[in-house]
């Protein structure tokens, strides 16, 4: 077999090219640590996502000082949670699965991109150094509403980010005759690992309460504020609770006598 010298030359050049390509990719993997979506995670039953620890409630969780995990469910035709909020200067691991058909989770304008396959969980870790907002698209055809499937990823400045959750339980109706109190049961959940120093401000009618609290990392602080129903007097009274940027509010009605006293014994 006689191969022309020039063609031999090209053969060598072609091999150099091929080896060079493989070397570049290997450099990316080894030296820069760019890993591929792989088979690290066990499979999951798509029908049982709602009972799953991670995907039952799709969310962002803090797992280390600057480390977060985001559990994301892709389904026709939306992403959960939406938006995904994370702080700047963080390292986030995304766990992505699909509920129904094959989707993708692709953060536009970045190298964060994976298929979301029912039964499989994709994991990707990335660092976010700068605050910013990204769009998330599904880039695998998933049905007739595919083009409406989008989400957002918000990378917040550190001082705007928290994993605080405020919840308040209060009665709708309180009776004067029982010498009842209007009570707000306040729970402040701190999902971050460091302590949260904040102030709980509550208001019932004209009465105000202020409490400086330290909520320990990954825990919930509970407190109760109350006012005698008699002090408020008969009628509707607005209440509100504020913690940082979170506010819960409602109205309580003070009545003379409860119509149905049955299941209402909160004291």
């Amino acid at each position: 077999m006689n191969i022309h010298t020039y063609e031999k030359l090209w053969l060598i050049a072609a091999m150099v090219l091929i080896v060079g390509f493989i070397a570049t990719i290997t450099y990316g993997s080894v030296a820069l640590g760019i890993t591929m979506v792989g088979d690290q995670e066990d499979t999951i039953e798509p029908r049982e996502l709602s009972e799953d620890d991670r995907f039952g409630e799709p969310r962002v969780e803090q797992v280390g000082e600057n480390e977060y995990e985001a559990y994301v469910v892709a389904r026709t035709f939306m992403f959960q949670p939406d938006p995904i909020e994370i702080p700047e200067n963080s390292e986030v691991t995304f766990y992505v699965t699909a509920r129904d058909v094959i989707h993708s989770f692709s953060v536009a304008g970045t190298n964060i991109n994976t298929m979301a396959i029912p039964g499989e969980i994709a994991t990707m870790t990335a660092e976010f150094d700068e605050p910013g907002e990204y769009g998330i698209v599904c880039n695998e055809y998933c049905g007739s509403g595919h083009h409406n499937m989008e989400g957002e990823l918000h990378v917040l400045p550190e001082d705007e980010f928290d994993l605080t959750e405020l919840s308040v339980e209060a009665d709708d109706e309180v009776a004067l005759e029982d010498d009842d109190e209007v009570t707000l049961e306040i729970a402040v959940e701190n999902g971050q690992l460091e302590d949260l120093e904040t102030t709980i401000e509550a208001e019932i009618g004209d009465e105000t309460f202020t409490e400086d609290v330290t909520v320990e990392g990954d825990s919930t602080y509970e407190t109760t504020v109350s006012v005698d129903a008699a002090d408020l007097g008969e009628g509707d009274h607005d209440w509100s609770v504020t913690v940082d940027d979170y506010e819960e509010s409602g109205t309580v009605t003070v009545v003379d006598q409860l119509e149905d006293d049955g299941g209402d014994d909160d004291e």
Binding site: S104, S106, V107, A108, G109, T110, E133, Y134, G135, V137, C138, N139, E140, Y141, H146, H147, N148, E150, G151, E152
Partner: peptide
């Protein structure tokens, strides 16, 4: 390279734009 996906009827989104 801007991240515009393939296989979609409307690569125009509500929440963001490709830059």
């Amino acid at each position: 390279l801007l991240g515009i996906p393939r296989r979609t009827a409307e690569p125009q989104y509500d929440g963001f734009e490709f830059e």
